[in-house]
Design a protein around this nucleic acid. Structure first.
Lengths: 219, 219
DNA sequence: CCTCCGTATTTTGGATCCAATATTGAAAAT
DNA sequence: ATTTTCAATATTGGATCCAAAATACGGAGG
């Protein structure tokens, strides 16, 4: 299996740094707007600045960090307008992904979605915000990947990444976690019936609620 | 003016390399699938491998090159399916951009579009394929930028970049160039009347024709 | 003749060093 | 007191060097 081979190989410093930076940004350890000092970070991560800089270039492409020549990198800040824009784009792309996914959905896919949903529910019961975010993401990406459009999947993933820092806030509220569980169940139900319109609708509501919540949190 | 200041500043080696690589890929000087030897390229461009590698990371993020750890970079190849996927995603995003643009369209925007269209027509008359590609791109991007959604604009731009190498083929045919001119006029006309549906429709046809043409060229 | 294995070469990954640019702070002039 | 200038410092950009991995090559064995 090629996936196994890829994982067995010790990761390059660059991949390691990339993962660490992503975590630091999405969990909020590196605050939006904070400048990124290459020397300090490189020493903290025990690597030289070269792999760090390449990782930062990757993150720049994903919109997680901002770059200005001779002034360096900083964590991207999202205004309310930016956030709305990202969610609107997600809406466009995810609707397409869901419709294609429904058209190709196999029973095995439904099993995987069910398993992902179980993880979500476990995390929600445990009140584990980080696990919740991870499981929720897995649920959605599993669905989107069923569309068989790898580029579309990648774009959606990137958009999720840019708002991860803010989404964590959302899962902070127990009521929100309960709500997510319910909405996922509705989505899963629609998927079982191969009802694309209904599935799209439930996800649209899902996003709209998240946006509304974030708007009140940020204003 | 900050734009002036930015241009007055001598570009970094990295920016220079980025531009050169983009040109080399989109014009086909670097063929799809060709491996990228860092030493050779660096020497050719008279820079060290460091800025070259950072530029390649940027291009990787944009989907112009593929990367595999310890095996290096190569120019991304697009299968017919990939190409269709990219155009489908463009369709989704560009429709949104046009609708928002129409809603906000000012007379000054129409003037800029008219000017861009003049360039397109001049290039078409001259039979200059490269100028045609540049002018056509400017026309569309000018329109999309009117939506006032910078992230959406950036995504669309990236998608255009990934297919640039193939689009050049399309403009090779004089009949196609004529067709593009006509379709742009129809779009411009719809925009003047603030008819969003019509504008979207003309652009959809525009793209569909390009895809069909490319499919026959590549099969 | 083909396959397998080990070595030589090529190529990429990373560390260190130096250069160029930006930022900071203090002194001087208004 | 405020602003300007200029030097000192911090930070990024780039070049060179070394290490690690992959590829290419050639010989031994079947």
């Amino acid at each position: 299996m090629s996936a196994d081979e890829a994982r067995r190989r010790p990761p390059t410093a660059q991949q390691f740094v990339l993962g660490e930076l992503r975590r630091a940004i999405t969990t909020g350890r590196l605050r939006p707007g904070a400048p990124i000092r290459q020397d300090a970070l490189a020493e903290e991560l025990q690597v030289s600045r070269v792999p760090l800089r390449e990782a930062l270039k990757t993150l720049q492409g994903e919109g997680l960090v901002r770059y200005e020549a001779h002034r360096g990198y900083s964590v991207e800040t999202l205004s309310l307008d930016d956030l709305r824009e990202v969610y609107r784009i997600r809406e466009l792309l995810e609707e397409e992904a869901v419709r294609r996914a429904v058209a190709r959905l196999a029973d095995a896919d439904l099993d995987r979605l069910r398993a992902a949903q179980d993880d979500v529910e476990r995390a929600a019961d445990a009140g584990d915000v980080l696990a919740m975010a991870t499981a929720n993401r897995l649920f959605h990406m599993t669905l989107f990947d069923c569309a068989g459009m790898p580029r579309l999947s990648r774009l959606i993933r990137t958009l999720w990444d840019t708002t991860d820092a803010y989404r964590s806030m959302y899962y902070g509220g127990p009521a929100n976690r309960e709500r997510v569980v319910k909405e996922h169940r509705a989505t899963l139900d629609a998927l079982r019936r191969r009802d694309a319109d209904e599935a799209v609708a439930t996800l649209t509501v899902h996003r709209a609620h998240a946006v509304a919540e974030l708007e009140s949190l940020l204003s």
